[in-house]
């Protein structure tokens, strides 16, 4: 059924040479679609990777910036660039070292990287060197740049949606606040 046969081996080879040692592998989903993953040596390699991908007519799908550790007091970023190339996905990840806050723009090679780059600029406070239009995209001016860098304490992770203030109004004095009954919990988890 598949009409395409995967990316050109020369592209894969080229990206591999730009990658960190052992920074290349591929995965497959249950239907047999492949996903190639590359980890670049340094952010300088990004421009060359973009050049290469553009030369092989890859289509830029999206860009994900993230903080792989989410530790308190430290922010370290990685940026994953996702491309579709001949029916498969090629992800090129650029790890930024702690304290590094900038990457080169790939808009010269992929016009549609514009919004993606503006997005991680505002959400993660990463600078993009050579971006043609570095305005805010979605984030309102009242909100801080790099808002996604705020570390979320584990205690609010579980039911982040409920606030005690609200529940006091709903319960309206019925049944004082107390912890969840333990009864039954152990059985159900088993």
């Amino acid at each position: 059924m598949k009409t395409t046969s995967g990316p050109d081996p020369r592209l894969l080879h080229g990206l591999e040479t730009l990658s960190l040692k052992g920074g290349f592998h591929w995965t497959e989903d249950r239907t047999g679609n492949r996903f190639y993953w590359f980890r670049l040596d340094a952010s300088e390699g990004l421009t060359r990777a973009a050049e290469l991908l553009a030369a092989f007519e890859a289509r830029m799908c999206t860009v994900t910036a993230y903080d792989p550790a989410r530790e308190h007091g430290r922010t370290r970023h990685e940026i994953a660039y996702h491309f579709a190339c001949a029916g498969t996905m090629v992800t090129v990840t650029v790890p930024l070292f702690e304290g590094t806050r900038s990457v080169p723009s790939i808009t010269p090679h992929f016009r549609n990287a514009d919004w993606n780059e503006r997005e991680f600029m505002e959400l993660y406070g990463i600078n993009v060197v050579g971006h043609p239009n570095p305005r805010r995209l979605f984030l309102d001016e009242t909100l801080d740049r790099g808002i996604m860098n705020r570390v979320i304490p584990v205690s609010v992770l579980m039911s982040g949606a409920s606030s005690t203030d609200l529940w006091e109004r709903i319960l309206g004095g019925r049944g004082a606040e107390a912890e969840t009954p333990g009864a039954g919990e152990t059985e159900e988890r088993a």
């Binding site: 994900t64 792989p68 579709a84 992770l157």
Partner: peptide, 29 residues
Amino acid sequence: LARSEAPRGELVYYLRTDGTETPNRLKWR
């Protein structure tokens, strides 16, 4: 990663987990 054809076109999801119950990063295009 996962991709599908939504009514408006290609939809891409990227998920990154760290072994906990919440994702480390969930991004969609």
